[in-house]
């Protein structure tokens, strides 16, 4: 059986980088992309056309994972199949299905939620002031993230089946830090990004009360935004709710409150 070289590792990495989700579909999600990434490795490891056929079919199974994290799975998959051959087929399926969930949880927290929120809120603020610097910085960081995927693939390949134990501790720490930073930024976004002020002015005889500046701001700055986030958070937890439906509810609410002159 032929051995895999660093050229094979690179080829798999680039295939996963450029086409992990081009074939994304509702039935097997990234199954097609995963198979595409590991296809040359399959061809190299299995000369028997019948075995190759079975392995390719098996690699087309359901798979869904944050693209950059799936490098860990690909690496481990390559190491195991290189040493064990086709008899590892069940191990590989178990490895893929077992790892994709937890890795996506971590990957979405770090590279989706926290990365996106922190860097793109900074980019957005600078953009609103007319400066492209934040956007360019976000793109540079996005490019710098790419080699990290190759590092993950190598870690996966070197650790093989032990990949979970090997990265578990570090990943946990990074995820914890990312969650903490993410939540802080989200907390900071409430008063800065949500803008809703009351247009209500109460008049009785000589007494005039501006509800926003005289009442609400004295209780808590950004009281209305806080209430709106709490309402939306609650809405999202209801059955049959998705983000599109919540947008419609918020749209109707905004138009109603604007027309009633409650909100400016």
């Amino acid at each position: 059986m032929s051995k895999l070289t660093s050229k094979d590792l690179k080829q798999t990495f680039f295939r996963n980088l450029f086409a992990s989700s081009t074939g994304w579909n509702y039935e097997k999600m990234m199954g097609l992309g995963y198979c595409y990434a590991i296809l040359p490795v399959m061809k190299k490891l299995y000369q028997d056309p019948e075995v190759l056929k079975r392995r390719v079919k098996s690699q087309l199974q359901f798979f869904n994972c944050t693209a950059i994290m799936s490098n860990l799975v690909l690496g481990a998959n390559m190491a195991i199949e290189e040493s064990e051959g086709e008899q590892s087929a069940e191990t590989i399926t178990a490895l893929k299905t077992g790892l994709m969930g937890p890795l996506s949880g971590v990957g979405d927290t770090i590279f989706g939620v926290t990365w996106g929120t922190v860097f793109f809120s900074i980019a957005a603020y600078m953009a609103i002031e007319g400066s492209p610097i934040g956007c360019i910085l976000a793109l540079i960081l996005g490019f710098l993230k790419i080699p990290l995927g190759y590092l993950f693939l190598k870690i996966g390949y070197n650790q093989g089946a032990k990949v979970v134990d090997a990265v578990g501790g570090t990943v946990q720490k990074v995820t914890q830090i990312a969650s903490m930073v993410g939540l802080t930024v989200v907390g900071a976004l409430i008063p800065t990004v949500v803008t809703a002020t009351s247009a209500w002015v109460y008049k009785h005889g000589k007494v005039t009360v501006n509800v926003q500046t005289d009442v609400l701001d004295k209780i808590l700055p950004s009281l209305i935004p806080v209430a709106l986030v709490a309402l939306t958070y609650w809405l999202l937890g209801r059955k049959h709710m998705n983000s599109t439906r919540v947008i419609f509810i918020l749209l109707i609410l905004a138009i109603a409150l604007y027309s009633l002159k409650v909100l400016a």
Partner: peptide
């Protein structure tokens, strides 16, 4: 008002 949705989704994920 709509940014409240994005913030609420983030709170759900974290």
């Amino acid at each position: 008002i709509l940014p409240a949705l994005g913030i609420a989704i983030l709170l759900k994920y974290l």
